[in-house]
């Protein structure tokens, strides 16, 4: 169960993409806080994974949303596991219409 502190919608028709939004958003959060990122294509999904690994954040859950993806990213703290145990509520942003949640293999939460 995850409660996101912030939603970054990479499908919005803005010139700045999801990474820019995540970078901005993460600075406001505490380690362990969870950001919900919505991306609509494979390159952006790959980029979020690579970015999260480089920044020591953790993708704790992920699911499909239409042709795109919804990723739950816990803010990291110097390679430590998220400090705040997240709890679930429906994000209410059209994400995961089926309500199914698919934990990422090997992810820590």
């Amino acid at each position: 169960m995850l409660r996101e502190a912030l939603v970054v919608d990479g499908t919005a028709k803005t010139c700045k993409g999801v990474i820019a939004g995540l970078e901005r958003g993460m600075t406001e959060l505490e380690p362990g806080d969870v950001v919900l990122a919505i991306v609509e294509d494979i390159p952006s999904r790959l980029e979020v994974y690579a970015w999260a690994q480089r920044k020591s954040h953790h993708i704790v859950e992920e699911r499909r949303r239409g042709v795109g993806y919804v990723l739950y990213i816990a803010k990291g703290a110097r390679n430590r596991v998220p400090l705040r145990a997240p709890t679930w509520r429906d994000p209410g942003h059209g994400a995961g219409e089926t309500g199914e949640v698919h934990p990422v293999p090997g992810a820590r939460a």
């Binding site: 700045k16 993409g17 990474i19 820019a20 970078e23 980029e47």
Partner: peptide, 10 residues
């Protein structure tokens, strides 16, 4: 990627 990580459009 550097631009994105600085919050820029690219």
């Amino acid at each position: 990627m550097e631009g994105k990580e600085l919050g820029m459009s690219t």
